[in-house]
Each structure stands twice: as structure tokens, then as C-alpha cells.
Amino acid sequence: MREMIKMVVIITILCAFSGGLLAAVRNGTKDKIEYQQLKFVKGPAIREILKGSSNDPIVDRFKLKVDDAEKSFFVGIFDGNADTVAFENFGKGFGGDIGVMLGVNVKNDKIVAVGVTTHSETPGVGSKAKTDLKFAAQFAGLLLNEDFKVKTDGGQVDAISGATVSSRGVCMAVSEAGKIYKQLKPRLINKLSEFNK
């Protein structure tokens, strides 16, 4: 019995110590890991969308609360004006969530560019949402509002042939982003003014 108790106590202490150490390391590296992940996973999409900005959008980022969840916003400075912001939103695709990064100009509410970041769509069909740049280019220059639809649903977006569900997913993500944008616009403008020097 004594031996049993000893074993339990020692393993418990060991595990507690291990947990403590891991929590400390995790806390210490959290910000750094977040930056690295943004830089290497979402970085290419962000840079593509905010092409020509004079700053590093991954450094100039801020967070706002949207419906209890935090969302990261990336600032693009063009000609000295911090007037463009990029953020990611998700829509339901054929194989799961489709991540869509989009940039919007807060002065005229127009979409700067759209790019698919993560998806699990059928390779060669739905995956064209990411690789076929013509599809995403349709969104550029349009006003960011809440009703983006593919043409078969009576909307304005040409779906990728054979991948209506994926195309709908992207439209849904952009429409949702429009909702978030409408809700947050005053705060976004407020935040962006901090980056104007």
C-alpha cells in the first residue's frame, strides 16, 4: 500500500511540474509563434492583397472583438495613408471551411483584393478558388456589402465551373466579412488613424 501511494504521489508531482514548465514556455513563446505563423502561413496572402504598401502588414496589426471572438486586422499604408485593412473570414465550402483574406479601403468601402488562404476543397475543381486568380479578381473594386452571390443564385459573381459550392463558400465568406466590416467600421477607422503618422 505504501509503495502504491508513493508511486501515485511521485507521478502526480512529476506531471504537475511538467505542466508548469510547459505553461511557462508556452506563455513565453506565444507572441513569437503567432508572428511566425502569420508570416509564413498567411503572410504570402496578406502581402499579395496589400501589394505596394510601404509597411509590413504583419507587424502593423491589431485585434478587435467580433461577436466574442478576436479577429486580427492587418494594416496597409499606401502613399503615407493607413487607409486599407485586411482580415480573414471563413465560409462553408464543399469539403469544409474556406478561409478568405480580403483587403478593403475604408475611405470608399471598396474591396482591394481577395485571396483564398486555407481550404479543403476537391483538388483540381474547388481548389481553383485559390489557384484560378481570375475568380478572386472579380471581387476587386466592388463595394464591400452583405450580399455577394454567385450568378446562379441571382448574384454578381461568376462561379468556377463545376465548383458552385466552393464559389458559394467564398461569396459567403465575403458577405460575412461585409457584415463584420459594417459593424466595425467606426472602430476600424479609429484604429487606422493611429497608424497615420
Binding site: 511521485i10 511538467s18 514548465l21 508556452r26 513563446t29 509563434i33 511566425q36
Partner: peptide, 22 residues
């Protein structure tokens, strides 16, 4: 006990690698 100890250090390495050599 060995597994707990080893797993702890492996996770430390994993976190450090994510932070510095992503």
C-alpha cells in the same frame, strides 16, 4: 516517468522551434 519527462522536453523543443525556426 520517463515518458512524462521526455514528452515535456519534446514539447518545449516543439514550441521553441515554432517560435524561432518556423
Amino acid at each position: 516517468c520517463f515518458i512524462v519527462i521526455i514528452a515535456t522536453f519534446v514539447t518545449v523543443v516543439e514550441l521553441l522551434m515554432q517560435a524561432f525556426t518556423y
